[in-house]
Design a protein around this nucleic acid. Structure first.
Lengths: 189, 189
DNA sequence: ACCTGAACACCGTTCAAGT
DNA sequence: ACCTGAACACCGTTCAAGT
């Protein structure tokens, strides 16, 4: 008699993500995940190959959600400059809500758990599209890379507590978006 | 009879850093480090408290070396713009040479192994000093944060293989430095 | 004062046996 | 078809005994 599944791949990945955000990567053990979905450790291997690919699956879920959040925010504004600003604000908001999951996207210390690089890269697609409107097609890719690199760097330093030299982090963020958008749109040909 | 030390704290930290760069964080086991310095696993605990603080010590060594590299590069140029450009180039070069060690500085997934935040923040000090010359003291901190965030974001995406949408990474780097320096120095008051 | 082997706890993973 | 307990390998860590 076939036994009905008491859990699912999606539930396992979601549970792993919740443990990761509530604690940290060391707390993300197979036993803890099993406990949360209501089975024993060995049963997880019916749904995911091993811990490394479970971590990767969490990372890919994050990348995909992050891209959706950016896309939605950017789509709400008509003006390209306002749209890019909204995209970056949404980026930062998502990362604040999922700091540990976001950390997975650039945790190249654990190669087996790295999310698909093309998927991570695709997070920038909506930014490139809006940049085309702001700076034209020739330098849109480089301008988008500059903005995304800045945004990633900013939130990642913010999460790491690297802003210790005083001053307001909020105003540094506002200053940064303005400076980068100004810098990329005033590029000499 | 007191037994002469067959290894040292510095040697243990150096060995850990070498293993980390040659492989990855999972390969950085106490047994592997012990092997490399020529003792057995338990002896390491005479030199470092545990694996987490060993990892942290490696991270702090990296932060300190990185700051020195930036400081030297920046000091070689008289003009502030050229100095900041040189600092960022040195930053990138150091990270390329120590990608996994650099990853430790922002691996906030493992809180016990996080380097001292004030030390990480101090990496930006030479940048702030040069920014004062470029943009004046009022916005120097925010301008420095913008440049460092961009630089960190750029190299970290580069290492993560996130630049997958085509184009040259080198020219994106050159475009980025120029855009950020232009953006921060043309800030409206 | 530092090093060692033995021992322990914990965790990822496999597998044969259950339903 | 999925779940389970038992078992194994591996790793961090402790500790009593060596020199």
């Amino acid at each position: 008699m076939p036994a009905p599944s008491r859990t699912s791949r999606a539930a396992v990945i979601a549970a792993a993500g919740e443990i990761l955000e509530a604690a940290d990567l060391e707390a993300l053990t197979m036993a803890a995940v099993a406990d949360r979905v209501g089975v024993r450790g060995p049963s997880l291997y019916k749904h995911v190959a091993n811990r490394s690919v479970l971590i990767r699956a969490v990372a890919e879920q994050v990348a995909s959600d992050l891209r959706d959040a950016i896309e939605r925010a950017a789509g709400r504004q008509r003006d390209p400059r306002a749209s890019l600003r909204a995209a970056v604000v949404a980026y930062r908001r998502y990362v604040h809500a999922h700091p540990n999951g976001y950390g997975l996207l650039f945790a190249h210390l654990l190669p087996d758990s790295m999310p698909d690089a093309a998927l991570v890269a695709s997070v920038g697609v909506p930014i490139v599209r809006r940049m085309e409107e702001l700076v034209g097609p020739e330098s849109a890719l480089e301008a988008a890379r500059t903005l995304v690199a800045w945004a990633h760097g900013f939130v990642s330093m913010e999460l790491g507590g690297a802003f210790r030299l005083g001053g307001s982090v909020e105003s540094a963020f506002a200053f940064g978006v303005d400076a980068v958008l100004r810098g990329v749109s005033e590029a000499p040909d």
